[in-house]
Nucleic acid binder design. Structure first.
Length: 775
DNA sequence: GCCTTATGTATACCA
DNA sequence: ACTGGTATACATAAGGCG
């Protein structure tokens, strides 16, 4: 019977692998022209490498017999590869079962003549992406035929791949179906504990269908859950977005479904959401996005509250719908006043859908660049994103991928920070080096594979630390960085010719941003002990070159007759004398061979003795606050607001009297209790389970109280607490901000330990005493 | 036992 | 679960005193 072949074009949404009919099968979920398709690949075989120091024929018989003993059908291919820049002889071991591959590799690596096994720790779906160049969130064409024995899935068509898909050089997104969801459960106090309590309401939204809400009637939540599952099937979303979804919301829903005898088949393969590689919940055939992961990476958000996040993205939020604590949701619901709860949840679902839509371009570009599926790229830590990029890059360069191994933490010296000249400075220019570390790594060819352990000719030798790096050939990091830097240059050049509001512009701008992030993370990655391409000398030498560059720049500034007021790692602060600055910049280019640029100019700039903390009035008229309490998330709003106002008075009006008077009045107001409660909340991150803390701490104590009340604070959550009146240590006087009933804020604490120290930090320059603020 | 000082733990920031 | 450098607060241990 002739096999009808055809060609399909698709955008890759998700990839997974299944053992089916005894064979590993790669599943590619694609979308195109409004159709959802599943492409099956049954021919792709798992494999790994054995590094040998002898001739292949002397080890092959032993390898054959060992694999026979294990009952594995394998094929051996002697090959040449590079490992850390050195040519190595390897045997590629192609096997059949990815699940037993690790064990096989371990056994075969013990055979005499085998040095080690490599790449046996790479998952099959990752392997497939690396080897074929197939890329998530990117367009492809593929030759396909109708699948025989297609699996039971939700898809318009199921095909078998005739060969690997070919990646197309096309940008743009297909029409993706985004669905969002938000859940309110009836825990003891409105929390999503372990799903022990019924769900009050599940809200869904998205651009495709009208928003809906499924809620519990008088009885239980079975109906709501069943309707939710049905709705997802009808909607058939490509992306399911939630907020905190990976941190208990899916678990709670799953628990409830199980409790009510329902199977939570919200994926495209009639199975249930399951936990995946980066601690996230994976939904086969769809992309499960937890936007809280995105929020946690936004440094300007003190607290990852959904409404703050939404406002930060520029989305409109109806404040009146958020006007109660989450802790009160349960009571409200129980009191029969369900309307505000429903409205609140509906708005949240709407915000999540809008945020997902807003972020989609950037996230898909990021996924495409580093070759991690969309749900993975959002959930994965920075180091794994860089690593994913490098793994694909290594394969293209014929380099073997090092194993992930456990190492002990090994610190080294980093950037140089100068002592600031305290006081008020006028007309100060900041010059800094553009992408200093990446450029140093390129310039001196700093890479694990160019590192010369023995002294040799023609090396770049790092100052202070003395590590040598071969000048040629180009090292692995240099190749990767150069490709990133040139990609970014091209993108930026293309952007200039485009209208700012066009789809193309948006796409390239997002791409450019993704490239920049990976470029700048490369140095940190190479000094991370968990990195596959970890090399301490690389990180250490880069930092040492950085220190020498900044020191030499200081020298050049001084010879040009400029006073250096401050400097940190890759920047120096100088008197803004344009002619002299220009001289310094050209000297830097000539003598150091790196680009430094004037970054900004301060009309006025204020330093205390402390490093990394200052504030200034920029030439643009803006106030810039760096490192001070006003920009720290772990200070109460009262202190931050007071300090900000104070800084404005001092910088704009230079009136210390007025500033002091303002502070006195502010302090009096706080002592009267005339301050919004939310300005008293102090937020701190719970960095480990409460039991693991060695000393008592206020936010840990607050988290413990939350637990008692039925809440489940997770590691990584920010705990908001208020200091209340009472006796004992500070940690004995805190309440989670949502549980203030019967407690009164300790305004004296807020004055003495928050407002006054924050103000004094700035006023101390003018010899204003702390006590004079309390009068 | 009480007070003062030194040290350690914890967090968030800057680059 | 990318790096080191830095400031700061509070808890706790250690030291001093009588």
């Amino acid at each position: 019977m002739p096999i009808k072949a055809s060609r399909v074009r698709f955008w890759l949404l998700d990839i997974n692998f299944e053992m089916r009919l005894g064979t590993p099968e790669i599943w590619l979920w694609g979308t195109c022209n409004g159709e959802r398709i599943l492409l099956l690949e049954r021919e792709f075989k798992p494999y790994f490498y054995l590094v040998i120091s002898e001739e292949p024929r002397s080890v092959l018989p032993a390898l054959r017999s060992e694999s026979q003993k294990l009952g594995e059908r394998v094929e051996f291919q002697p090959l040449e590869r590079n490992f850390f820049g050195r040519p190595v002889k390897v045997i590629k071991v192609i096997c059949t079962n990815p699940e037993t591959m690790g064990n096989l590799a371990q056994r075969l690596s013990k055979v005499k003549g085998i040095d080690e096994s490599l790449e046996d720790d790479i998952r099959l779906s990752t392997r497939y992406l690396i080897d074929t160049g197939v890329t998530p969130c990117s367009w492809h064409v593929a030759d396909v035929r109708r699948a025989e024995n297609p699996p039971e899935v939700i898809a318009d068509k199921v095909y078998s791949l005739v060969g690997p898909p070919e990646k197309l050089d096309e940008g743009g997104l297909p029409d993706l179906r985004i669905m969002s969801f938000h859940v309110v459960s009836l825990g003891g106090s409105g929390s999503l504990q372990q799903g022990k309590e019924p769900l009050a309401v599940i809200s869904v939204d998205g651009s495709l269908k009208r928003p809906r809400q499924f809620f519990k009637g008088d009885g239980e939540d079975r109906e709501a859950l069943a309707s939710f599952i049905k709705y997802v099937k009808e909607y058939d979303p490509d992306i399911i977005a939630g907020y905190g979804a990976n941190q208990g919301i899916w678990q709670a829903i799953m628990y409830r479904a199980q409790h009510r005898g329902l199977k939570l088949t919200v994926d495209r393969a009639f199975s249930e959401p399951h936990s995946s590689l980066y601690g996230h919940i994976s939904i086969t055939g769809r992309v499960g996005l937890d936007l809280i992961d995105v929020a946690k990476e936004m440094p300007s958000l003190d607290v990852e509250r959904l409404d703050y996040f939404a406002r930060y993205l520029g989305l409109s939020v109806k404040e009146e719908l958020m006007d109660f604590e989450e802790a009160d949701l349960s009571d409200l619901w129980a009191s029969g006043d369900k309307k505000p709860v429903l409205k609140y949840s509906a708005q949240n679902a709407q915000i999540i859908a809008e945020a997902a839509e807003f972020l989609l371009v950037f996230l898909t570009q990021f996924s495409d660049l580093v070759k991690l599926p969309l749900d993975h790229v959002v959930a994965a830590a920075v180091g794994f994103r860089v690593e994913s990029y490098l793994m694909a890059f290594a394969h293209k360069a014929g380099e073997l991928i090092p194993k992930r191994i456990g190492r002990d933490y090994a610190p080294y010296a980093g950037g140089l920070v100068l002592n600031p000249k305290p006081g008020m400075h006028k007309d100060i220019a900041v010059i800094d080096f553009t992408s200093m570390y990446p450029n140093l790594m390129i310039k001196f060819n700093i890479s694990p594979d160019t590192y010369a352990e023995e002294p040799a000719k023609d090396l770049n030798v790092a100052p202070e630390v003395g590590y040598g790096f071969r000048k040629s050939p180009d090292g692995f990091y240099k190749q990767a960085l150069r490709s990133l830097v040139s990609a970014r240059r091209d993108l930026v050049a293309k952007l200039k010719g485009l209208g700012p509001a066009t789809t193309e512009h948006k796409l390239l701008e997002a791409r450019q941003r993704a490239v920049k992030i990976i470029t700048n993370a490369m140095y940190g990655y190479c000094g991370w002990v968990g990195a596959r391409w970890y090399a301490k000398p690389v990180a250490e030498a880069t930092a040492a070159w950085g220190r020498s560059v900044i020191l030499r720049t200081i020298g050049l500034a001084k010879s040009a007759g400029l006073e250096v007021i401050y400097g940190d790692t890759d920047s120096i602060f100088l008197r803004n004398d344009p002619a002299k600055i220009a001289k310094v910049l050209s000297d830097v280019g000539e003598e150091i061979g790196l680009e430094a640029r004037p970054e900004k100019v301060y009309r006025k700039l204020l330093f205390t003795e402390a490093k990394k903390k200052y504030c200034g009035l920029l030439s643009t008229g803006e106030i810039d606050i760096v490192g001070l309490e006003a920009v720290r998330g772990d200070w109460a709003g009262v202190a931050k607001r007071a300090q900000t106002k104070l800084i404005e008075i001092i910088l704009r009006e230079e009136d210390v009297e007025k500033a002091t008077a303002f502070m006195r009045q502010f302090v009096a107001q706080v002592l009267k209790g005339d301050v919004p409660k939310r300005d008293l909340v102090i937020w701190k991150t719970l960095t480990k389970p409460t039991e693991e803390y060695e000393v008592k701490a206020p936010h840990v104590e607050a988290a413990r109280i939350m637990k008692e009340k039925g809440w489940q604070p997770n590691v990584g959550d920010k705990i908001g607490y208020i200091v209340v009146k009472g006796d004992g240590k500070l940690y004995q006087r805190v309440r989670p901000f949502a549980f203030m009933k019967g407690f009164e804020p300790d305004y004296i604490y807020y004055v003495q330990n928050q407002v006054v120290p924050a103000a004094a930090r700035v006023l101390s320059i003018y010899n204003v005493d702390e006590s004079s603020l309390i009068a």
